[in-house]
Simulated scan of single mutants.
Amino acid sequence: MDADADEITSLVGREVYSNNGVFVGEVEDIQLNLNAEAVTGLALTELNADLFAAQMTGQKGVIVPYRWVRAVGDIILINDVVERYEGDDADSEIAV
């Protein structure tokens, strides 16, 4: 289990980009479901002001669902965050 914990904590501090190449933010923390032993979300800070300026009202960051993650390497790629965030179901997808 220690190897899994090391992998999870290694996500903190990585930059997150949409698969379109747009910078989204930086991973500040990880949201976990302890019962299922699974990562459920990424808490992002240092957000791209162009993406979130209209919705940010003194908030420090957002939590994006982990199911959006496409790839993890030196950076983290997520699915089309711009389109999802600006869409009709934005409130149900990203927690601000």
Rank of each mutant, 00 (worst) to 15 (best):
D4G: 07
I76L: 06
I76W: 09
L32H: 01
G25I: 10
D89S: 14
A38Q: 11
V72H: 04
R84K: 13
W68H: 06
A36C: 01
V64D: 01
W68D: 12
D74Q: 15
V27R: 13
G21D: 10
L44V: 07
G13S: 04
I94G: 03
D80W: 02
L47N: 08
S18Y: 06
E46Q: 15
D29K: 10
R70K: 13
G61Q: 15
P65H: 09
V62L: 01
E86H: 07
V96E: 00
T9K: 14
E46P: 06
T57R: 13
I94K: 02
L44I: 03
N35E: 14
A71Y: 04
A53H: 09
G58K: 09
I78V: 15
K60H: 11
T40C: 03
A53C: 09
D80C: 06
D80E: 03
V24W: 04
A71K: 07
D6F: 08
A71P: 00
V62S: 00
E86W: 03
T9W: 08
G25W: 11
A53K: 11
I30R: 01
L77G: 02
M56T: 06
V64G: 05
E83A: 13
R14I: 10
E26L: 05
L44M: 07
T57N: 14
E28N: 15
D91F: 06
V12T: 09
V81P: 02
I75Q: 09
Y85L: 12
L51D: 10
R70T: 02
A36S: 08
Y17G: 07
I30D: 06
D50V: 05
D50S: 03
A54M: 04
T9H: 12
A95L: 10
T40D: 02
L34K: 02
S18H: 01
V24H: 11
I94N: 04
T40Y: 00
I8W: 06
L44H: 11
D74G: 13
D6C: 00
N20R: 12
T40F: 05
D74V: 02
G61D: 15
A38C: 05
G13K: 02
V12F: 06
V81T: 01
D91P: 03
M1I: 00
D6K: 10
I75C: 04
A38N: 10
A53M: 04
G21H: 11
E26A: 04
N33R: 02
I78M: 04
I63V: 15
V72F: 01
E83T: 11
E86M: 12
Q31G: 07
I78A: 08
V24M: 10
N48K: 09
V24G: 00
V12Q: 14
K60R: 11
D2A: 08
P65A: 04
A5D: 05
A5T: 05
I78N: 08
D88M: 12
D91N: 10
E26C: 13
L42N: 10
L32Y: 04
V82P: 01
G13D: 08
L47Q: 07
A49T: 07
N35V: 06
V72K: 09
V22K: 12
A49P: 03
G73S: 15
L77F: 08
R14E: 01
V12A: 06
I78T: 06
T9E: 15
I78F: 01
R67F: 08
A54R: 12
V81G: 09
V96A: 05
E28R: 13
N33W: 02
D89P: 00
